[in-house]
């Protein structure tokens, strides 16, 4: 698998369950060591894990927050782990909480938040150290349309300011809406990649989904098949 994400680009990584999306993200986050191959993030090889980690902001699929402390305390804690401190940390916490619409709830325990609020905070925590690469692992699972839209807007805003984004999702319309380029992977390999238009060109004349024979979902199913991947 080989791909490149440019500054300010939103790169979609699509694939069925078990295709290797999370493994790819975990290796880029230096959580898993690659058995072979290399990756470089903002000029730093992932083999130099301590430096590479500073260049990556991971928003995991699960709500990885401390429920029993406040939103602000969560933000401050993760900021301190990345070496952010003092007034700078305070300013970043307030700015990010404002961006995800939680500034007025910053003193509240996370356990009192709704699922959507937790998702937004989960995203904000991943941005506290202003990483050049943001990796979002299915960030909209179980959220309402309003929260989903807010997440989209923030991701687009970050891309506008130069942050490269790796976005994985099972929702094709999200990839269509957000991603500048998309890679479809299966069994650890990229089976197709390109812009949305380039991928749509891959549609065959005999669609798999005859009832809605258009869009990225059709291409995805043609490339990866209809069999279960449990």
């Amino acid at each position: 698998m080989s791909f490149q994400i440019k500054e300010g680009e939103i790169f979609g990584l699509l694939g069925p369950n078990g295709a290797g999306k999370s493994t790819t993200i975990n290796m880029l986050a230096t959580y898993l060591a690659p058995t072979s191959g290399t990756a470089t993030i903002a000029g730093v090889s992932i083999s130099d894990s301590q430096r590479a980690k500073r260049n990556v902001g991971l928003v995991p699929q699960e709500i990885a927050l401390y429920d029993d402390i406040s939103a602000e305390r969560n933000m401050r804690f993760f900021g301190e782990l990345f070496g952010v401190s003092g007034n700078e940390l305070t300013a970043r916490v307030d700015d990010l909480l404002d961006k995800v619409g939680l500034l007025d709830r910053k003193k509240d325990l996370v356990s009192t938040f709704s699922g959507g609020m937790k998702r937004r905070l989960n995203l904000a925590v991943g941005l506290i150290h202003q990483p050049p690469l943001l990796m979002l692992d299915e960030p909209t699972v179980g959220v309402d349309p309003q929260t989903r839209e807010a997440i989209f807007e923030l991701v687009e805003q970050l891309a506008g300011s130069g942050t490269a984004t790796l976005y994985t999702t099972h929702y094709m319309e999200e990839a269509e809406r957000l991603c500048d380029r998309i890679a479809i992977i299966d069994e650890g390999r990229i089976v197709a990649s390109g812009t949305l238009d380039e991928l749509l060109e891959l549609r065959t004349e005999a669609p798999v989904r005859v009832e809605r024979p258009h869009g990225l979902a059709e291409v995805f199913l043609q490339l990866t098949g209809k069999q279960y991947r449990d």
């Binding site: 430096r51 990885a64 782990l81 070496g83």
Partner: peptide
């Protein structure tokens, strides 16, 4: 179990 441990592990400490 909650995934927070992993999040802390991928910080540069």
């Amino acid at each position: 179990e909650a995934g927070v441990w992993k999040r802390v592990l991928i910080s540069p400490i």
